[in-house]
């Protein structure tokens, strides 16, 4: 037996609360982040990801306090992202108790940030988050481009090339979100996931679109993802992490039970 595929619940946090949006827009309250983190820890989550979606930079310190509180009670890896612009931001999050820091928009605006943060703190703690959207092409070959600013801004950058570049600059992992699927509950964009996962040597976390447990199975078996991330199917008590792992195990996927 070897390395288990990971299930990672994702907590989008704003103003100290966990929320969940549809296609990155409408937000719905899902509860207190510390309580939710403890619940997922008890259910056997392999890691937790917190995305700070606070709009105003004035309120950024709130996430540090939340991470400090979670890190003193929950002993599994914690990834934190949202609003990371400088190496100093990475340092503050790591000191608060994050094990990995996720960089998204700033990686596009300043790719050197990924190299600097990785050079200083090690690739193991640098996750590059990619928000990908399929674009129309003349010959109908699939093409996805990188979007930033929570999915609002197009960059024209092709996703697979970008993922390879991020690996080269020192990313230790890719968090790949399909903007087309996020919040739809129609399942991962498997073609996108497979294309990126097969193209890079670092682990890829599939994200965006999970509506049932079979979608998680597909993300691993068809999307070749190393980990699967989901939010709403867990937040509202529809499924537990344990149920998700059992379903994956039934399909022959190695999980930590």
């Amino acid at each position: 037996m070897g390395l288990a595929k990971r299930i990672i619940p994702c907590l989008d946090v704003t103003n100290g609360r966990v929320v969940k949006g549809v296609n990155f827009i409408e937000l719905r309250d899902a509860g207190n982040p510390v309580e939710i983190a403890r619940r997922y820890d008890e259910q056997g989550a392999d890691e937790l990801t917190f995305l700070d979606i606070t709009a105003s930079s004035d309120d950024r310190d709130l996430i540090l306090h939340i991470i400090e509180e979670v890190a003193s009670q929950v002993f599994i890896p914690l990834t934190v992202g949202g609003g990371v612009r400088k190496v100093e931001d990475v340092r503050r999050l790591l000191n608060a108790g994050a094990d990995k820091v996720s960089i998204n928009t700033s990686a596009v605006l300043n790719p050197q940030l990924v190299a600097d943060a990785s050079g200083h703190y090690g690739a193991q703690c640098i996750v590059v988050a990619i928000d990908a959207k399929q674009v129309e092409t003349q010959d109908n070959t699939p093409r996805w481009e990188v979007f930033t600013h929570g999915g609002r801004k197009e960059t024209g950058i092709e996703v697979i090339t970008w993922a390879k570049k991020m690996q080269h600059l020192g990313a230790g992992e890719i968090l790949l979100t399909s903007m087309d699927r996020d919040g739809t509950r129609n399942g991962f964009d498997l073609a996108l996931t497979k294309a990126v996962s097969d193209a890079v040597d670092i682990p890829v976390i599939a994200s965006g679109g999970v509506g049932n447990l079979d979608h998680l199975v597909d993300g691993i078996l068809k999307g070749h993802a190393d980990a699967v991330l989901a939010a709403s199917i867990f937040h509202y008590g529809e499924f537990t992490i344990q149920q998700a792992k059992q379903r994956m195990a039934e399909h022959g996927i190695e999980v930590r039970l």
């Binding site: 390395l3 288990a4 193991q124 670092i202 890829v204 070749h224 190393d226």
Partner: peptide, 13 residues
């Protein structure tokens, strides 16, 4: 024949 990623990241026995 599937690729194993490096870093070795996650829960192993």
């Amino acid at each position: 024949g599937l690729k194993l990623k490096v870093p070795h990241m996650g829960w192993n026995q």
